[in-house]
Design a protein around this nucleic acid. Structure first.
Lengths: 219, 219, 219, 219
DNA sequence: CATGAATGAGATTTCATTCAT
DNA sequence: TATGAATGAAATCTCATTCAT
């Protein structure tokens, strides 16, 4: 009786929580944190729901299943770094400064985005099984390769860089010098008895990486 | 009587069914493979029991629990590389040859022991939580650091190496250049559309790493 | 529309399948029976799930683990007897009748609630380890102590009770005379070759207990 | 070869450990402690083997299985108290002193043998299922019943005790007043916020029990 | 779109008991 | 008699996913 006569009065608030974009984003952020912290198998769907403040059912609504959610987080992380990389403007710089900028950028990005390193580690543990499912896989190709090619070519022409440098190998090496240090900082710190994560240690490592790359490249 | 007439050489059964050493070893080998393939959370105790051909109960008898087994596998992997490293004899070589040998050794070891890379990745995902529990943690410190110090010092003295090279940073870089390539070969191969795991690709990468290190170090 | 035309009285299903209160209660009832029958270690979570007709998973959802469930059952049993005790009205009765009523109440409650005796036995086997974890432990204190104090004081004043009676000792003795007989009825019956659980035997024991208490107390 | 030529030299020590009586006794003692501390279901065969310093296989050799071992421990505990009870000499004492002696004896025995209380508790949890299997069950009948009958009869004759006292009920009550206090001392201490196990508390309880029994019995 | 109770399959771990030596 | 490694059954607990509302 009362339920029928007083419709508006008993309504819930004007549904502020119905915001699909916001819900999806909250889930993705929580999932990125959880997968990054615990890996694909260690991550808990319940925990992601809890962290995001979203009902568990919504996860399945938006992402299908746990794997789909993981894949979305992985893709978003790749998209983010590619987008950031596209912001690099190296053509105005001389080869050495350009290279230094590129190396620094990569290092700084890795420091700022530990979740990207972790998700990559997880994905490689699974032999890139999930990554291969991505449709727009070509878009994952880094624009840095092209930038590196250009820088190297200019450097060789100006005789400041050595010849016969493979841009892909160089790209991998630049990533490697930062990635390994950061992704393995916990075991390395334990073994060396030093905190490799301290600001001073990170700064020192950044300088070292630049020196290695430029030292190797010098003509 | 019979104990004396039978030949001593044939006394012991060829496959003793009660051989703790053998059982423990079989479990550890299977565990290393399983943890390496699937990580700590993804690994299945049942699968390890099945692979090793021993009763699941024995795993708990010898290693306490899943984590204890993982830790034993991790420790054994560390012990193996440290033992291999100790076999390196670089003092007879000139600094450049010595450095080349050390870099090659590291690269070859990583290729031959993908399980070590994977276990390290898993351990870092867990922020070295398990590694810190190891008692003899100091023994995990690589003898390569000392060898590198010596090589660098000799190279500087002979004016073939640059000055002010931090052996620890160099050690990390040498490891990084190989480790990252190998541990990330699946995602990298997917993105580049090339098989970075092919023998030719591995060979090429090995040469590149040597060049980067020696190129950086040259005076 | 349809919501308004259908009769409100019949809206709610007679047996709602999603009823947390009901589920929790069913688990607790089954757990009390199982723990009471077999002790903490002998009880089986599977059996509790089966008896209560709920999914095993729900037990962990509502009570955390087996121990948490046991603790909840123990606490509920204590709460039940304390609630029942609070219903006793002895102030209108003369000391002797009041004492008789109190003793009878205790005996009758023990007969009606064998699960309480059994849970206490189990808890004592574990040296009250679980009971100590309860937050509201003070609420477990029996109101009977106060009632006994009052009865004894009145009885002494009226010179029908002996002096120097410690209410706590008396409370323990009243409980003991019933508790021991009932909790040990199986071994006692076996040894005496009599069924101490027969109605006549229980009745006789009740009379005996009253006589012991009043006989002891008489001035 | 050497194994055949040098027999005595390679023999094990002159087998001091081959002492069936000793082995059996060690197992029984450890079992009594373990079953008493953890109940039938909570007790661990491994732990008993460890505590007794005897190989696990021996337990099965001597006692058949876990239940057989438990039963042997239970029987031994009963035998011990019956033997102790037989040492009581009350016929020289007047009824009141005899009763006091008997009550004290029971109380003191319970204090000295907590394992007996615990085993009885466990056995009652299992509804005396194991006790019923004992062959010489009649021998478990306490000689105290006869002694009580005699004391009560003498007391009635001397007009110091009340009439119509059932010796079995009295026996149960005497046991109850001590047993319940001791077996439930952990929960009672927790609830009352007092240490009922302290020497002073035990002494006080002993006095109380004597007073209750003699107070009840007085003519 | 949203909730959170409910589920079933499967994970880790435990334990009394037996077997090979 | 004695040893302790080995076993299989069963226990507790977990988790991604679905269902009723």
């Amino acid at each position: 009786m009362d339920a029928c006569t007083s419709k508006p009065a008993t309504r819930r608030p004007i549904l502020p929580q119905r915001d699909p974009e916001r819900t999806r984003g909250a889930i993705l952020a929580a999932a990125t944190a959880e997968f990054s912290a615990k890996g694909l198998d260690g991550a808990r769907v319940d925990e992601i729901a809890h962290r995001s403040g979203v009902n568990k059912r919504m996860i399945y609504h938006y992402f299908g299943d746990k794997e789909g959610l993981y894949l979305a987080a992985l893709e978003a992380s790749y998209a983010a770094i590619r987008t950031a990389e596209l912001g690099l403007r190296l053509s105005d710089l001389d080869p050495i400064d350009g290279m230094r900028t590129l190396v620094r950028f990569t290092w700084d990005y890795f420091i700022a985005h530990p979740e990207f390193l972790s998700l990559l580690g997880t994905e490689n543990l699974h032999r890139a099984a999930n990554l291969k499912k991505l449709h727009r896989i070509r878009e994952l190709h880094s624009p840095l390769i092209g930038m590196l090619s250009d820088l190297v070519a200019r450097g060789v022409k100006q005789k400041v860089f050595r010849k016969a440098v493979d841009p892909m190998q160089l790209y991998i090496s630049i990533a490697a010098l930062g990635f390994f240090y950061l992704s393995n900082r916990h075991t390395l710190s334990t073994i060396f008895g030093q905190d490799l994560n301290a600001p001073a240690a990170l700064s020192e490592r950044g300088d070292h990486i630049v020196e290695v790359v430029l030292g190797y490249l010098r003509a």
